[in-house]
Nucleic acid binder design. Structure first.
Lengths: 173, 173
DNA sequence: TGATTTGATTATTGATCAATCACTTTTAAT
DNA sequence: ATTAAAAGTGATTGATCAATAATCAAATCA
Protein backbone atom coordinates (compact mmCIF):
# COMPACT_ATOMS: atom_id res chain seq x y z
CA UNK A 1 0.00 0.00 0.00
CA UNK A 2 1.40 3.36 -1.05
CA UNK A 3 1.03 6.12 1.50
CA UNK A 4 -1.07 8.95 0.12
CA UNK A 5 0.29 12.40 0.88
CA UNK A 6 -3.02 13.94 1.76
CA UNK A 7 -5.22 11.77 3.85
CA UNK A 8 -8.23 12.98 5.72
CA UNK A 9 -6.33 12.52 8.96
CA UNK A 10 -3.43 14.65 7.72
CA UNK A 11 -5.75 17.44 6.62
CA UNK A 12 -7.44 17.39 9.97
CA UNK A 13 -4.23 17.90 11.88
CA UNK A 14 -3.01 20.49 9.37
CA UNK A 15 -6.15 22.48 10.07
CA UNK A 16 -5.62 22.17 13.81
CA UNK A 17 -2.03 23.37 13.50
CA UNK A 18 -3.15 26.34 11.44
CA UNK A 19 -5.87 27.10 13.97
CA UNK A 20 -3.42 27.04 16.87
CA UNK A 21 -1.24 29.60 15.09
CA UNK A 22 -4.03 31.89 13.98
CA UNK A 23 -6.04 31.74 17.21
CA UNK A 24 -2.92 32.41 19.30
CA UNK A 25 -1.72 35.31 17.16
CA UNK A 26 -5.03 37.04 16.52
CA UNK A 27 -7.21 35.88 19.39
CA UNK A 28 -9.86 33.18 19.11
CA UNK A 29 -12.88 35.46 18.80
CA UNK A 30 -11.23 37.92 16.45
CA UNK A 31 -9.67 35.25 14.27
CA UNK A 32 -11.76 34.10 11.33
CA UNK A 33 -12.21 30.64 9.92
CA UNK A 34 -11.08 32.12 6.60
CA UNK A 35 -7.72 33.02 8.15
CA UNK A 36 -7.35 29.49 9.48
CA UNK A 37 -8.19 28.09 6.05
CA UNK A 38 -5.68 30.37 4.35
CA UNK A 39 -2.93 29.27 6.75
CA UNK A 40 -3.83 25.63 6.09
CA UNK A 41 -3.93 26.34 2.34
CA UNK A 42 -7.47 25.14 1.88
CA UNK A 43 -10.79 26.86 1.30
CA UNK A 44 -12.80 28.32 4.17
CA UNK A 45 -15.85 26.06 3.85
CA UNK A 46 -13.62 22.98 3.88
CA UNK A 47 -12.75 23.71 7.50
CA UNK A 48 -16.38 22.99 8.33
CA UNK A 49 -16.23 19.56 6.77
CA UNK A 50 -13.84 18.57 9.58
CA UNK A 51 -15.08 20.79 12.39
CA UNK A 52 -18.72 21.60 12.21
CA UNK A 53 -18.32 24.77 14.29
CA UNK A 54 -15.54 27.18 15.13
CA UNK A 55 -15.82 26.13 18.76
CA UNK A 56 -15.25 22.47 17.88
CA UNK A 57 -12.05 23.51 16.14
CA UNK A 58 -10.94 25.34 19.27
CA UNK A 59 -11.69 22.28 21.40
CA UNK A 60 -9.64 20.07 19.08
CA UNK A 61 -6.77 22.57 19.24
CA UNK A 62 -6.90 22.60 23.03
CA UNK A 63 -6.83 18.82 23.16
CA UNK A 64 -3.68 18.78 21.04
CA UNK A 65 -2.02 21.32 23.30
CA UNK A 66 -2.92 19.42 26.48
CA UNK A 67 -1.70 16.15 24.98
CA UNK A 68 1.63 17.81 24.25
CA UNK A 69 2.13 18.67 27.93
CA UNK A 70 0.67 15.49 29.35
CA UNK A 71 2.54 13.09 27.04
CA UNK A 72 5.91 14.72 27.58
CA UNK A 73 5.45 14.92 31.35
CA UNK A 74 4.41 11.28 31.41
CA UNK A 75 7.56 10.20 29.59
CA UNK A 76 9.70 12.16 32.03
CA UNK A 77 7.94 10.78 35.08
CA UNK A 78 8.45 7.23 33.82
CA UNK A 79 12.15 7.59 33.09
CA UNK A 80 13.61 10.11 35.54
CA UNK A 81 15.22 9.39 38.90
CA UNK A 82 13.42 10.86 41.93
CA UNK A 83 16.14 13.35 42.85
CA UNK A 84 16.14 14.90 39.35
CA UNK A 85 12.40 14.79 38.75
CA UNK A 86 11.34 18.29 39.80
CA UNK A 87 14.20 20.01 37.98
CA UNK A 88 13.55 17.96 34.85
CA UNK A 89 9.84 18.77 34.87
CA UNK A 90 10.56 22.50 35.13
CA UNK A 91 13.09 22.22 32.34
CA UNK A 92 10.64 20.32 30.19
CA UNK A 93 7.93 22.94 30.61
CA UNK A 94 10.32 25.75 29.70
CA UNK A 95 11.19 23.72 26.62
CA UNK A 96 7.55 23.28 25.64
CA UNK A 97 7.03 26.98 26.08
CA UNK A 98 9.84 27.77 23.67
CA UNK A 99 8.89 25.18 21.10
CA UNK A 100 5.10 25.57 21.26
CA UNK A 101 4.49 29.14 22.40
CA UNK A 102 1.26 29.32 20.45
CA UNK A 103 -0.21 26.33 22.24
CA UNK A 104 0.53 27.97 25.58
CA UNK A 105 -0.97 31.26 24.45
CA UNK A 106 -4.08 29.43 23.29
CA UNK A 107 -4.45 27.73 26.66
CA UNK A 108 -4.17 31.10 28.37
CA UNK A 109 -6.94 32.44 26.18
CA UNK A 110 -9.09 29.42 26.91
CA UNK A 111 -8.72 30.00 30.66
CA UNK A 112 -10.74 33.19 30.26
CA UNK A 113 -13.55 31.84 28.08
CA UNK A 114 -16.84 31.33 29.92
CA UNK A 115 -18.20 28.39 27.90
CA UNK A 116 -18.94 25.06 29.53
CA UNK A 117 -17.33 22.82 26.93
CA UNK A 118 -14.13 24.86 26.94
CA UNK A 119 -13.94 25.22 30.72
CA UNK A 120 -14.45 21.48 31.09
CA UNK A 121 -11.59 20.74 28.70
CA UNK A 122 -9.35 23.11 30.66
CA UNK A 123 -10.32 21.61 34.01
CA UNK A 124 -9.70 18.12 32.74
CA UNK A 125 -6.25 19.05 31.38
CA UNK A 126 -5.16 20.79 34.56
CA UNK A 127 -6.48 17.95 36.70
CA UNK A 128 -4.57 15.35 34.76
CA UNK A 129 -1.31 17.31 34.96
CA UNK A 130 -1.75 18.00 38.65
CA UNK A 131 -2.58 14.39 39.50
CA UNK A 132 0.41 13.11 37.55
CA UNK A 133 2.87 15.54 39.12
CA UNK A 134 1.50 14.99 42.61
CA UNK A 135 1.70 11.21 42.28
CA UNK A 136 5.25 11.46 40.96
CA UNK A 137 6.34 13.79 43.79
CA UNK A 138 4.84 11.39 46.34
CA UNK A 139 6.49 8.42 44.62
CA UNK A 140 9.78 10.29 44.79
CA UNK A 141 9.39 10.59 48.56
CA UNK A 142 9.35 14.36 48.42
CA UNK A 143 8.08 16.07 51.55
CA UNK A 144 5.00 18.30 51.39
CA UNK A 145 4.16 16.96 47.92
CA UNK A 146 0.88 18.92 47.70
CA UNK A 147 2.65 22.20 48.38
CA UNK A 148 5.45 21.37 45.94
CA UNK A 149 2.92 20.48 43.26
CA UNK A 150 1.05 23.73 43.83
CA UNK A 151 4.26 25.75 43.60
CA UNK A 152 5.30 23.88 40.48
CA UNK A 153 2.03 24.76 38.78
CA UNK A 154 2.19 28.33 40.10
CA UNK A 155 5.65 28.89 38.65
CA UNK A 156 4.35 27.54 35.36
CA UNK A 157 1.49 30.01 35.29
CA UNK A 158 3.78 32.97 36.09
CA UNK A 159 6.17 31.78 33.40
CA UNK A 160 3.30 31.76 30.91
CA UNK A 161 2.51 35.38 31.75
CA UNK A 162 6.16 36.45 31.66
CA UNK A 163 6.51 35.06 28.14
CA UNK A 164 3.12 36.29 26.93
CA UNK A 165 3.65 39.93 27.88
CA UNK A 166 7.40 39.78 27.27
CA UNK A 167 8.48 40.72 30.79
CA UNK A 168 11.13 38.14 31.72
CA UNK A 169 12.07 39.89 34.98
CA UNK A 170 8.86 38.46 36.45
CA UNK A 171 10.74 35.14 36.75
CA UNK A 172 13.78 36.60 38.54
CA UNK A 173 14.50 34.86 41.83
CA UNK B 1 -22.85 74.57 44.42
CA UNK B 2 -25.24 71.67 44.18
CA UNK B 3 -23.68 68.38 43.11
CA UNK B 4 -25.16 67.18 39.82
CA UNK B 5 -25.96 63.48 39.75
CA UNK B 6 -24.65 62.86 36.30
CA UNK B 7 -21.41 64.56 35.54
CA UNK B 8 -19.26 63.75 32.59
CA UNK B 9 -16.78 62.14 34.99
CA UNK B 10 -19.47 59.89 36.46
CA UNK B 11 -20.64 58.77 33.05
CA UNK B 12 -17.10 57.96 32.08
CA UNK B 13 -16.57 55.68 35.02
CA UNK B 14 -20.02 54.14 34.62
CA UNK B 15 -19.07 53.18 31.09
CA UNK B 16 -15.78 51.72 32.28
CA UNK B 17 -17.57 49.65 34.94
CA UNK B 18 -20.00 48.36 32.36
CA UNK B 19 -17.15 47.55 30.01
CA UNK B 20 -15.29 45.60 32.68
CA UNK B 21 -18.37 43.46 33.28
CA UNK B 22 -19.24 42.87 29.65
CA UNK B 23 -15.68 42.30 28.44
CA UNK B 24 -15.00 39.86 31.28
CA UNK B 25 -18.20 37.90 30.78
CA UNK B 26 -18.30 37.76 27.00
CA UNK B 27 -14.68 38.26 25.99
CA UNK B 28 -13.24 41.52 24.70
CA UNK B 29 -13.32 40.70 21.00
CA UNK B 30 -16.71 39.06 21.07
CA UNK B 31 -18.31 41.72 23.25
CA UNK B 32 -19.93 44.60 21.39
CA UNK B 33 -19.95 48.29 22.23
CA UNK B 34 -23.76 48.04 22.08
CA UNK B 35 -23.68 45.55 24.95
CA UNK B 36 -21.47 47.87 26.98
CA UNK B 37 -23.84 50.75 26.28
CA UNK B 38 -26.86 48.72 27.29
CA UNK B 39 -25.22 47.77 30.58
CA UNK B 40 -24.35 51.42 31.21
CA UNK B 41 -27.90 52.44 30.23
CA UNK B 42 -26.83 54.81 27.49
CA UNK B 43 -26.90 54.64 23.71
CA UNK B 44 -24.18 52.88 21.78
CA UNK B 45 -22.86 55.95 19.93
CA UNK B 46 -22.48 57.79 23.23
CA UNK B 47 -19.74 55.37 24.26
CA UNK B 48 -17.65 56.81 21.47
CA UNK B 49 -18.00 60.33 22.80
CA UNK B 50 -15.88 59.22 25.78
CA UNK B 51 -13.69 56.57 24.19
CA UNK B 52 -12.98 57.14 20.55
CA UNK B 53 -12.27 53.46 19.93
CA UNK B 54 -13.14 50.16 21.53
CA UNK B 55 -9.46 49.61 22.29
CA UNK B 56 -9.25 52.90 24.20
CA UNK B 57 -12.13 51.71 26.35
CA UNK B 58 -10.26 48.48 27.06
CA UNK B 59 -7.15 50.43 28.02
CA UNK B 60 -9.14 52.60 30.43
CA UNK B 61 -10.70 49.48 31.96
CA UNK B 62 -7.27 47.90 32.43
CA UNK B 63 -5.97 51.03 34.12
CA UNK B 64 -8.82 50.94 36.60
CA UNK B 65 -8.14 47.29 37.38
CA UNK B 66 -4.40 47.87 37.88
CA UNK B 67 -5.08 50.87 40.11
CA UNK B 68 -7.30 48.69 42.26
CA UNK B 69 -4.45 46.26 42.95
CA UNK B 70 -1.70 48.85 43.21
CA UNK B 71 -3.57 51.24 45.52
CA UNK B 72 -4.67 48.54 47.92
CA UNK B 73 -1.22 46.92 48.04
CA UNK B 74 0.32 50.33 48.65
CA UNK B 75 -1.94 51.00 51.62
CA UNK B 76 -1.07 47.62 53.10
CA UNK B 77 2.65 48.08 52.62
CA UNK B 78 2.52 51.45 54.34
CA UNK B 79 0.58 50.27 57.38
CA UNK B 80 1.49 46.63 58.03
CA UNK B 81 4.21 45.30 60.32
CA UNK B 82 7.01 43.37 58.58
CA UNK B 83 6.17 40.00 60.12
CA UNK B 84 2.55 40.14 58.90
CA UNK B 85 3.23 41.70 55.50
CA UNK B 86 3.39 38.63 53.26
CA UNK B 87 0.31 37.02 54.79
CA UNK B 88 -1.63 40.27 54.57
CA UNK B 89 -0.70 40.77 50.91
CA UNK B 90 -1.88 37.29 50.02
CA UNK B 91 -5.09 37.85 51.96
CA UNK B 92 -5.64 41.16 50.21
CA UNK B 93 -5.24 39.64 46.76
CA UNK B 94 -7.71 36.88 47.57
CA UNK B 95 -10.09 39.60 48.69
CA UNK B 96 -9.67 41.56 45.48
CA UNK B 97 -10.30 38.39 43.52
CA UNK B 98 -13.59 37.83 45.31
CA UNK B 99 -14.76 41.42 45.13
CA UNK B 100 -13.55 42.25 41.62
CA UNK B 101 -13.49 38.94 39.75
CA UNK B 102 -14.29 40.65 36.48
CA UNK B 103 -11.26 42.90 36.71
CA UNK B 104 -9.03 39.89 37.23
CA UNK B 105 -10.64 38.06 34.33
CA UNK B 106 -10.11 41.09 32.13
CA UNK B 107 -6.43 41.24 33.05
CA UNK B 108 -6.08 37.58 32.17
CA UNK B 109 -7.61 38.26 28.78
CA UNK B 110 -5.30 41.20 28.25
CA UNK B 111 -2.27 39.03 28.93
CA UNK B 112 -3.01 37.14 25.72
CA UNK B 113 -3.65 40.11 23.42
CA UNK B 114 -0.83 40.85 20.99
CA UNK B 115 -1.27 44.62 20.68
CA UNK B 116 1.49 47.01 21.68
CA UNK B 117 -0.62 49.48 23.65
CA UNK B 118 -2.25 46.69 25.65
CA UNK B 119 0.94 44.75 26.27
CA UNK B 120 2.65 47.94 27.45
CA UNK B 121 -0.15 48.63 29.93
CA UNK B 122 0.13 45.09 31.25
CA UNK B 123 3.93 45.25 31.56
CA UNK B 124 3.72 48.55 33.39
CA UNK B 125 1.14 47.23 35.85
CA UNK B 126 3.08 44.06 36.60
CA UNK B 127 6.32 45.99 36.96
CA UNK B 128 4.81 48.38 39.46
CA UNK B 129 3.35 45.59 41.58
CA UNK B 130 6.56 43.59 41.49
CA UNK B 131 8.74 46.57 42.40
CA UNK B 132 6.48 47.52 45.28
CA UNK B 133 6.32 44.00 46.71
CA UNK B 134 10.04 43.45 46.29
CA UNK B 135 10.91 46.74 48.01
CA UNK B 136 8.52 45.91 50.86
CA UNK B 137 9.96 42.40 51.31
CA UNK B 138 13.48 43.87 51.41
CA UNK B 139 12.38 46.57 53.85
CA UNK B 140 10.89 43.85 56.03
CA UNK B 141 14.28 42.14 56.16
CA UNK B 142 12.96 39.00 54.52
CA UNK B 143 15.61 36.64 53.18
CA UNK B 144 15.71 35.82 49.46
CA UNK B 145 13.31 38.69 48.71
CA UNK B 146 13.52 38.17 44.93
CA UNK B 147 12.52 34.54 45.24
CA UNK B 148 9.72 35.36 47.69
CA UNK B 149 8.42 38.06 45.36
CA UNK B 150 8.47 35.67 42.43
CA UNK B 151 6.63 33.01 44.41
CA UNK B 152 4.09 35.57 45.62
CA UNK B 153 3.32 36.58 42.04
CA UNK B 154 3.30 32.95 40.91
CA UNK B 155 0.74 31.97 43.53
CA UNK B 156 -1.35 34.93 42.41
CA UNK B 157 -1.32 33.76 38.80
CA UNK B 158 -2.27 30.19 39.75
CA UNK B 159 -5.04 31.55 41.94
CA UNK B 160 -6.35 33.54 38.96
CA UNK B 161 -6.52 30.37 36.90
CA UNK B 162 -8.09 28.33 39.69
CA UNK B 163 -10.89 30.87 40.01
CA UNK B 164 -11.31 31.42 36.28
CA UNK B 165 -11.80 27.77 35.39
CA UNK B 166 -13.47 26.94 38.71
CA UNK B 167 -10.97 24.33 39.85
CA UNK B 168 -10.13 25.27 43.46
CA UNK B 169 -8.09 22.11 44.09
CA UNK B 170 -5.31 23.73 42.06
CA UNK B 171 -4.55 25.82 45.15
CA UNK B 172 -4.38 22.85 47.57
CA UNK B 173 -1.12 22.74 49.48
C1' DT C 1 -15.80 1.75 -18.99
C1' DG C 2 -18.98 3.58 -15.93
C1' DA C 3 -20.32 4.37 -11.17
C1' DT C 4 -19.36 5.79 -6.52
C1' DT C 5 -16.93 7.72 -3.02
C1' DT C 6 -13.67 11.24 -1.37
C1' DG C 7 -11.56 15.75 -1.61
C1' DA C 8 -12.23 20.23 -2.59
C1' DT C 9 -14.05 24.85 -4.37
C1' DT C 10 -17.09 28.99 -5.69
C1' DA C 11 -20.82 31.59 -4.56
C1' DT C 12 -23.96 33.21 -1.30
C1' DT C 13 -26.50 34.56 2.83
C1' DG C 14 -28.25 36.46 6.94
C1' DA C 15 -26.48 38.43 10.78
C1' DT C 16 -23.58 41.41 13.19
C1' DC C 17 -20.50 45.30 14.44
C1' DA C 18 -17.50 49.58 15.08
C1' DA C 19 -17.83 53.91 13.89
C1' DT C 20 -19.99 58.26 11.85
C1' DC C 21 -23.54 61.63 10.98
C1' DA C 22 -27.25 64.26 11.70
C1' DC C 23 -30.20 65.45 14.94
C1' DT C 24 -32.86 66.49 19.52
C1' DT C 25 -33.11 67.48 24.38
C1' DT C 26 -31.51 69.24 28.56
C1' DT C 27 -28.80 72.42 31.35
C1' DA C 28 -27.16 76.62 32.78
C1' DA C 29 -25.44 81.26 32.17
C1' DT C 30 -26.54 86.01 30.57
C1' DA D 1 -36.84 84.67 28.05
C1' DT D 2 -32.81 83.72 25.06
C1' DT D 3 -29.15 81.37 23.73
C1' DA D 4 -25.18 78.70 23.66
C1' DA D 5 -23.08 74.77 25.27
C1' DA D 6 -23.42 70.08 26.97
C1' DA D 7 -25.66 65.64 27.10
C1' DG D 8 -27.63 62.31 24.55
C1' DT D 9 -30.04 59.54 20.67
C1' DG D 10 -31.84 57.32 16.04
C1' DA D 11 -30.50 55.97 11.76
C1' DT D 12 -27.18 54.36 8.85
C1' DT D 13 -23.05 52.34 6.70
C1' DG D 14 -19.42 49.66 4.93
C1' DA D 15 -17.13 45.88 6.28
C1' DT D 16 -16.87 41.41 7.98
C1' DC D 17 -18.05 36.62 9.38
C1' DA D 18 -19.81 31.78 10.38
C1' DA D 19 -22.18 28.66 8.12
C1' DT D 20 -24.77 26.51 3.99
C1' DA D 21 -25.79 25.21 -0.72
C1' DA D 22 -24.50 23.80 -4.94
C1' DT D 23 -21.02 21.88 -7.62
C1' DC D 24 -16.76 20.15 -9.52
C1' DA D 25 -12.72 17.01 -9.88
C1' DA D 26 -10.09 13.25 -8.97
C1' DA D 27 -9.33 8.84 -7.31
C1' DT D 28 -11.06 4.09 -6.48
C1' DC D 29 -13.52 0.26 -7.58
C1' DA D 30 -16.83 -3.05 -9.90
Amino acid sequence: MAKPETTSVNRRSEIISAAIEVFAEIGYYRATTAQVAERAKISQPYVFRFFSTKENLLLAALEVSWSRVIESFRKLVETTSPELLEAKLIQEYVNIQEMYQNEVLLQMQAQTIREDAIQETMRSGFKEVRDMVLAAFREAGMDKPEERTMLFLARGMLCNVAVAINLPELMKG
